[in-house]
Design a protein around this nucleic acid. Structure first.
Length: 585
RNA sequence: GGGCAUGUAGCUCAGUGGAUAGAGCAUCAGAUUCCGGUUCUGAGGGUCGGGGGUUCGAAUCCCUCCAUGCUCGCCA
């Protein structure tokens, strides 16, 4: 089933071709939702853009297009306004028929893609032997949401966790532990993760100021990379421990990921360098093997290199990213590779992509996308950190959100004289707390920095998770109150649109499909949040104006259907954001 | 110094070529015999950072300047 917008586009393409007497020339009808409800539901701006090309006044072109338009089933007669806008208003009967159709569809009219493609979403990517902190929050939440949307559209999605489990840092840590706490290298869980993190910090400090230790660390890396058993064993212990810790967070967030860390690509690194050499791109400079970049310069204005092999023979993250890119194209056969990392890495990816392209590794049908996002800032507008100046642990941050909602809920229950079990309150607080953190992040355009505020994200008013979840729970309570079984309204139940608020709600319900398609293309989850927020607003307006349970027979059924469709749309939309719904809260 | 991003209402932000620039919060004023008032209606509040340009039309594209942030050869 096509979205309404697509349906209209097709009709316009036909009309434009006839009006201009062109051979099916691909003219974009510039069909968009009306900028203002007073102009109707959709508008086409195509006449103005054609004026110069065709050499006729835009209004005349608009008239000619309108004459060839065959929209009688969908719209009231189109009108032409201003310089040549073509305004369309959908017919209630058409809206009713569309609603009746989607209400019988589990996907609510959202089609699956006709050409499923393998897509990779690379997100989260914490480092082994470190705790997940606030810096991993956005990648994890945004990545999961994008993966869910692609999956729902029927794409073949690989969710990859490119964990930092390799490289210099490991040599450093193992060398340090060997000296200070050797049991950690041979015994499972000899240290808890917090201590491990502390050791890591000390190791880094030592590494930065002690050349002899740097050499020791380097030798550890060599041992590890050449597969010395004792080193591999220690490395495995550390990885396993971290993995269990990460898993707790992913479980709390309900995020699924396949781990494929940097170490996975280790055997493929030499070939990357060799092949760059073969391609004639490799240059040795100051002992390092690199590719000089186009369009990137250093402070002196000289071309900047991308180093793929260090002067000590070791590889770095650019090499790993290049190897991963090749593997994903050749072995995974991915057609769309999406990296969810902070905006600070934009130039790194631009550089890696450039080198891969120049080496001829990127076929034309493969799309590489870096999806950047801004920093998480505290309410003072500076980077969030603990009093000690360290980044906040993700676990603490999530638990704080849950605890704060719990406190609010307890107080609210007392105020309303509601008796709820401890279990209920714990479950609701967990769902709302986590959802609030997710929604706050997803609801704004990811490219800018974002100010993290518990008070704002947990507010029961405004564009927040609690508000959305409440709207859902409120609808469900109508069903309970009226003892309605929404699944048994029956196939003969029909939507009838009379009140203005019913029409507005209906039109919005029918835009789910185009909203999801837009997010699939632009990878901007805030558009879906915006859609859902507007949906709940329109529902509230309808609900305020139109009694449901007290209405009489066919109207009552119709309104129940609108309630049910709204609830199902909220549930589906929130699920795509990674947010579950609550029947009661 | 170079690159990239950001700059829109008091605050947090939508809006990447279309009509009179929108929403939430906050502020103020109203409604309610109510199916969960966590509601609804309305008001005030903007030289879209400044300036120039392209266009029938610019918050949106180009140039320039200003402010803030991130980043710039062997960490990831």
């Amino acid at each position: 089933m096509n979205s309404i917008q697509e349906e209209l586009k097709l009709k316009f393409q036909v009309a434009i071709a006839q009006a201009l007497d062109t051979e099916g020339a691909e003219t974009d009808p510039m069909l968009v939702p009306a900028s203002n409800p007073q102009f109707g539901d959709y508008q086409s701006n195509v006449a103005m853009s054609l004026a110069k090309k065709v050499g006729k006044p835009p209004r005349a072109i608009a008239e000619s297009i309108v004459q060839h338009l065959d929209l009688a089933d969908l719209c009231e007669p189109p009108t032409i306004a201003g310089p040549g806008f073509i305004n369309l208003t959908l017919k209630p009967a058409y809206l009713e028929a569309q609603l009746n159709a989607i209400s019988r569809d589990d996907r609510l009219g959202v089609a699956t893609t006709k050409h499923p493609l393998r897509a990779i979403v690379d997100f989260s990517s914490p480092n082994i032997a470190k705790e997940m902190h606030v810096g991993h929050l956005r990648s994890t939440i945004i990545g999961d949401c994008i993966a869910r949307i692609l999956e729902f559209r029927g794409q073949d999605v690989l969710r990859l966790n490119h964990v930092g489990d390799w490289g210099t840092q490991f040599g450093m840590l193992i060398a340090y532990l060997r000296e200070k706490y050797p049991e950690a290298l041979t015994t499972r869980d000899a240290l808890d993760l917090g201590d491990l993190v502390e050791f890591y910090r000390q190791a880094k400090k030592r590494f930065d100021g002690d050349p002899a230790f740097q050499e020791t660390a380097r030798l550890e890396v060599v041992k590890l990379q050449s597969g010395v058993e004792e080193s591999r064993f220690a490395w495995n212990l550390l990885c396993e421990q971290s993995r269990r810790e990460f898993q707790q967070i992913y479980q709390l967030l309900d995020v699924r990921l396949d781990e494929r860390g940097e170490s996975f690509y280790n055997p493929l690194l030499p070939a990357v360098v060799e092949d760059l050499d073969q391609a004639g791109l490799l240059v040795e400079d100051a002992g390092a093997k690199c590719v000089f970049l186009e369009g990137f310069t250093n402070k002196a204005g000289e071309p900047l290199p991308l180093i793929v092999q260090k002067s000590d023979g070791g590889y770095n993250y650019a090499t790993t990213d290049l190897a991963a890119l090749r593997y994903r194209i050749q072995e995974d056969e991915a057609k769309r590779i999406i990296y969810i990392t902070d905006a600070g890495q934009a130039s790194h990816f631009a550089q890696v992509f450039q080198v891969a392209r120049r080496a001829g590794w990127i076929p034309d049908d493969v799309e590489l996308v870096h999806v950047p996002f801004g920093l998480v800032l505290g309410e003072d507008g500076r980077k969030v950190s603990t009093r000690a100046g360290e980044s906040v642990r993700l676990k603490d941050l999530l638990e704080e959100a849950i605890a704060r909602f719990r406190a609010y809920l307890e107080a609210k229950c007392i105020e309303d004289q509601r008796e709820e079990t401890a279990e209920f309150k714990a479950e609701v607080s967990k769902v709302v707390g986590i959802s609030a953190v997710k929604y706050a992040d997803l609801s704004q355009n990811r490219t800018s920095n974002y100010i993290f505020s518990y008070d704002k994200m947990l507010a029961p008013l405004g564009n927040t998770a609690p508000y959305m979840l409440y709207a859902y729970a409120r609808i469900r309570s109508i069903g309970r109150k009226g003892q309605i079984d929404f699944d048994r309204l029956g196939n003969e139940a029909k939507v009838l649109l009379q009140d203005e608020t019913e029409l507005n709600l209906a039109k919005h319900l029918l835009q789910l499909s185009e909203t999801i398609n837009a997010v699939e293309t632009d990878l901007l989850p805030n558009r879906l949040c915006q859609y859902l927020f507007e949906l709940s607003q329109k529902f509230n307006q309808f609900y305020d104006r139109c009694p449901v349970l007290e209405a009489e027979a066919p109207v009552k059924t119709s309104r129940l259907l609108l309630c049910d469709l709204t609830a199902r749309t909220l549930k589906l939309g929130l699920a795509l954001l990674g947010i579950p719904v609550l029947e009661r809260m």
